[in-house]
Design a binder for these strands. Structure first.
Lengths: 387, 387
DNA sequence: TTGTACGCGTTATCAG
DNA sequence: CTGATAACGCGTACAA
């Protein structure tokens, strides 16, 4: 800038003004522009930030950038953030809480203008660090109590209920559940939702049907193998799609047919669910939508830090695909009215015509219990809102 | 810092020295430390950067952060970068070249200390922007000629050859090829490799067996459907794993058995290959290793910008799994005894029965042409979840 | 409109 | 060892 000003024969203040588009006579503008172009001037973002107190950077902290659900969320956030002229800084926390608190602490050095964080474990001082963060923070996920923090959540308990309702409606009674760690917020919420949903259907819970691993493929597979070694489910609900893929492999390797012998439902409704064969039914928790909303909340707060804390909720929905389509063949009941006539009975000769439900090209089948496709309305009555 | 110094009764210079661990008498250190703790002093990273001319940020630009191959690369890079105390800034370019050049131009504002970029298209001025970048840049991928840019590459032509050799050794002759765009660097290299490999085996190339889409799942599926509509391959090589998953779905939906009717091989050897059923054979291009090496090159260059340009090469390998295991059944082989029906309702093609070699639990089978088993599976990543 | 001068928060230099 | 002071590069009151 100094050299530009010298070259244009003006003061650095005039040069700065022209380059920022404020003020300047026609002649000055011309000279400065020319000089800047000649020397290939590019403003130093650091110095600019020191002056403006804003970096134009927004951070996103999730535990695993490899999980497709976070990829979806990240894309949505990046889209919003980029369209505001900012850049996105991505952190992988690994779910380790010390890692996250360190991140929050580092926030104080003002390297980012704001942060979106999706913690899976929340402790007291974690929460404390959140509320008195020196820069705006938006939390994606359940946050105990009504902490004064911008927060976008979904009702995963209700999401679990949607899945259980669907399975029960298909005649399944021995519904297994492969969950993530119970000391995580999503793990605890799903566990509670599962137990509540079974109770609502007067189905006694057989603890043999419940397994816990972590939220990954390998753990999901191992947990399912343990479960299959001791009992015989006719359906399996998995706490996320990665687990569901692991469960699918365990089931197929054990000779179970999906969905005939065991219906399978995942959660998060990621790309992965559509990429499996058979395609996986999955509970959509609106991850992209939550990301989008979180990004918007953050940008608003950056613009006006005095805003009161806000909380938004994205309703879950159930997307039924081949892995849980059709009633259980063991169920001796007439198909429920409204149940899509998709499933052929085992042993029935195959109609040559491709049927929508099993063709991977076909779109998702909407569950009769879930209402119209996409997010379904919430049931605050039957399901508690927060953890 | 000003208030800390005042509170400690020393000059800001002394405070700075103590907080940076250089110099200071025992008494001064005590006073400054106490004062800093009292006011909860946190150094301002921007001001520090303005002075030190380094931000501690490193950028990574890839086409699609949702592609598992880039996730693997990203993880490897993040690991190296984080262990040097820096942070990783991730950009999704969408493969649009204007996007990348804009990114390179913005590099001039000094917001990052260096950048790793994996371009899939390279033009002349793109290359020019690369070579006279104001900050260190390392390129992952083929770079035409011997541009004076740090560069980590693999030999994807050789990788394609490994796959073709393997398929031919299994008795396959009508080998199809589903590629990405030919105007991309990887697309062109794979195409050339495929043609060369066939020629080496004296197999005439039937253009009906070649299809082109982009490097995504949906395009891979559509391309495979087009291919199947006009000809009958006994093997399919796909330019990456996302395409291979799309091809798998197209094959199964068309009633082809994998690998009995059509052997399937992907490229990149991502997690996705292991998550499919049957598990996909895939050409490992060492993406994690290339990422690791690129990060190390970048850190070295940041430390010493005077270093001469370096080029490293990571050899490809073939990981054989169920999707291409065993010889072609058309080569005289008795059908397997009693394949149990596994998944799928009537009309839905069932995935192959879990034979020992296809058990997803089993480790990859080493291809005789590939030498020792490919790179170890990705490190145990953090758990995945959602809320 | 233009130029001077100060401040953003730190670190580094140089006398004392 | 310590303190005053000059950068770092830019934006912007303020006065001319």
């Amino acid at each position: 800038m100094h050299t530009v000003a010298a070259r244009a024969g003006v003061s650095i203040a005039s040069a700065s003004r022209v380059l920022n588009g404020v003020g300047g006579s026609a002649e000055t503008i011309r000279k400065v522009r020319a000089a800047a172009a000649e020397v290939g001037y590019v403003p130093n973002a650091i110095a600019r930030s020191l002056q403006s107190q804003r970096t134009g950077l927004v951070a996103l902290a999730v535990e695993d950038i490899g999980n497709p659900v976070y990829v979806a969320m990240m894309r949505a956030i990046e889209s919003v953030v980029a369209s505001s002229g900012r850049q996105l800084l991505v952190h992988a926390t690994g779910g380790r809480i010390d890692n996250e608190t360190a991140l929050l602490r580092r926030l104080a050095n003002r390297y980012v203008d704001g942060m979106i964080i999706s913690p899976i474990r929340v402790t007291a001082d974690h929460l404390a660090a959140l509320v008195d963060s020196p820069v705006p923070v938006v939390v994606v996920g359940q946050l105990g109590a009504d902490a004064p923090v911008d927060n976008v959540r979904t009702d995963s308990r209700h999401g679990v209920a949607l899945a259980v309702d669907h399975l029960v409606a298909g005649g399944r009674r021995r519904i297994g559940f492969v969950n993530g760690p119970l000391d995580t917020v999503p793990g605890a919420a799903r566990d509670a939702g599962f137990r509540a949903a079974l109770a609502r259907h007067d189905i006694p819970l057989d603890e043999d049907l419940v397994e816990v691993g972590d939220f990954q493929y390998a753990a999901g597979r191992a947990a399912t193998e343990r479960l299959l070694a001791r009992t015989e489910p006719d359906a399996l609900l998995c706490a996320n799609d990665l687990i569901a893929v692991g469960a699918l492999h365990a089931l197929l390797a054990a000779g179970r047919r999906v969905p005939e012998d065991v219906a399978l439902v995942g959660m998060d409704d990621t790309e992965l669910a559509r990429m499996m064969f058979p395609q996986l039914s999955s509970v959509s928790l609106g991850s992209a939508e939550r990301g989008r909303r979180a990004a918007e909340l953050l940008l608003q707060r950056i613009a006006d830090p005095a805003l009161p804390p806000r909380r938004e909720q994205v309703p879950p929905g159930l997307v039924v695909r081949a892995s849980s389509a059709g009633p259980s063949p063991t169920a001796d009941r007439a198909p429920t009215a409204g149940e899509p006539l998709t499933a052929g009975e085992a042993g029935q000769p195959a109609p040559p015509a491709p049927r929508p439900s099993t063709d991977p090209l076909a779109g998702p089948i909407t569950d009769p219990f879930a209402g119209p496709a996409g997010p379904a309305p919430t049931h605050p009555s039957s399901e508690g809102a927060s953890s």
